[in-house]
């Protein structure tokens, strides 16, 4: 289980590095989208590990509503490129 946590943290660092490379804004957005999913899954794994359902609910809420902001931001940035 600890090895799983370690591997999940390792994969968490990959999109962070991709965001650091700062090329296209869309690649940064992709890294952000991937990071948002990965953090909520990590929170869920930790909540199962500790048997603490208060954090589990946070993970589920981040999964179910967190992507809405990304879609809004994507549309704002798209409008920016059109003008």
């Amino acid at each position: 289980m600890n090895l799983l946590l370690f591997l999940l943290t390792l994969t968490l660092c990959l999109p962070l590095y991709a965001a650091w490379l700062k090329e296209d804004i869309w690649k940064t957005m992709l890294a952000f989208a991937s990071l948002a999913t990965k953090t909520s899954i990590l929170i869920l794994v930790v909540s199962v590990l500790r048997d603490d359902w208060m954090i589990g609910i946070v993970g589920v809420l981040m999964l179910s509503v967190g992507n809405a902001a990304l879609m809004l931001l994507a549309h704002v940035i798209k409008r920016l490129e059109m003008l």
Partner: peptide, 25 residues
């Protein structure tokens, strides 16, 4: 119930987000 809700929202929102990002980029 919690985990199934997470599963369903993951399946729906991640695919929608993929479409939206592809459309916008």
């Amino acid at each position: 119930p919690l985990l199934v809700l997470a599963l369903i929202s993951l399946a729906i929102w991640n695919t929608t987000l993929g479409y939206v990002l592809a459309f916008c980029s």
